[in-house]
Design a protein around this nucleic acid. Sequence first.
RNA 1: GGGCCCGUAGGGUAGCUUGGCCGAUCCUCGUGGCUUUGGGAGCCAUGGACUCCGGUUCAAAUCCGGGCGGGCCCA
Length: 466
Amino acid sequence: MDFNDWYNDIVEEADLCDKRYPIKGMNVWKPYGWKVMKHIDSLIHREMERTDHDELAFPVLIPKTEFAKEAEHIKGFDAEVYWVTHGGTNELDVPMLLRPTSETAMYPMFSLWVRSHTDLPLKTYQIGTTFRYETKMTRAFIRVRQIHFFESHTAHVDYDDAQRQIEEDLEIKERFFNDLSLPCLLAKRPDWDKFAGAFFTIGIDALMPSGRTMQLGSIHHYKDNFAIPYDITYENEDGEHPYVHQTTYGMSERVLGAVVGVHSDDRGIKLPPSIAPYQVVIVPIIKRDGPDVEGYCEKLRDELIDAGLRVKYDGRDLRPGNKYYHWELRGVPLRLEIGPREMEEATVDLAIRDLPKGEGKKKLQVEGLADAIRGELDAYAARLKERAEEALAAGIHEFDRARDAEPEGIVKLGWCTNEACGTAMEEFLDMTMLGVWLDPDGTPREEKQCSECGAAGNAVLFAKTY
RNA sequence: GGGCCCGUAGGGUAGCUUGGCCGAUCCUCGUGGCUUUGGGAGCCAUGGACUCCGGUUCAAAUCCGGGCGGGCCCA
């Protein structure tokens, strides 16, 4: 089975979503999938609070008049917005659109909120729903029409302060994806592929098992490109009224799609402990006329929950094997099997999701169990990360000239920044340029001579993308 | 934007070419019961589908047209 078929099946089999809702590209979040997404959101909230961003919530509808103010922006999104043209049976004088992203909703308000240099920096974010009218090739979490979306929006006194925000965003990105055991590439998008209205865009890309990359997030420096049309100015200490410089950082439910794709095997998905709805599942082994295993397990569950772990006790009237398959498919990291034998000797049988059946079993003492489990979860997360890093490294292929390259996975070449050279390389490879490969701190990762003209340049990455 | 394909119980399928042997196949699943629980148990009973509208015909899951829904390829 190829990756596409596997992915389409697994998102439903693992109980993440139901694709039978009768609108293409709009799926129903199942409770289990929604729990995972909410945990991902929690990681974002934690990072935002840590960095002094304030959460807010804007309306979903934007009047056409506001949307149309920034010319590049409207050009970039015009073809993929849903329009609200009627109120009841009356046609609206000013049509409204369902936000594809929130710049044009927020910035008229920013213009009102920002008065003085003491109002800056303004650091905000929201987690909500956006809409894009995708027509072809929708895929659960990866390409959808209704998007669970995170976006931070900031405003600053000048270019340099906005640039410092970009650097903070890169640190946030680093911690966030580390918690997901999900290695990503950073690439500065070429000018012809940056976000509509941005001064520059840094893309965050993951490598899926299909060999395609998927953009999981983007960090934009807007300069004053939006501040001018939306008239966002402040009064500085000299009584002048300069425009603010702005940034955004966006991510979506695609992060979940990448977790599903990257951390998986033929038994199902493997969730990182940071977002697993249940980090541990307890399966009782019940013997007729035996001791009260169920009561014992429930008590142990309560103790582990009190110790801060997310634990599920599976007391369903099914055979144990059935439950094992059920929770493996859904990616629960650890499973405790407890029967009369374990009760007797005050131990638990531990099965570890990412290890082969033979190696993935050991006995733990009930004494100090919560700490032992935390240790196992950390080791598990580290193994997920290591495996994903190896897969990513193995997926990058370096060449000196595009015309000699095998266009497979991610292709690394040198580029001089000349657009003609870049597009020529895209054509040879039949791939998209992700951009200049960046280190985690946002600086170009390595120098490399241009594939086309031989001039000095930087390493750039190409791939087939989602 | 251009082209191709598909739609049968909750899921997966057989049947469609050549209309009638369809009171629609098989697996899975749901429900009730008995029996069971250390890697997907068994038996019995039972439940559930031809995407919609129109047309052709004595007769349509099957042929034709349209709607709706879904998938894929190319730009």
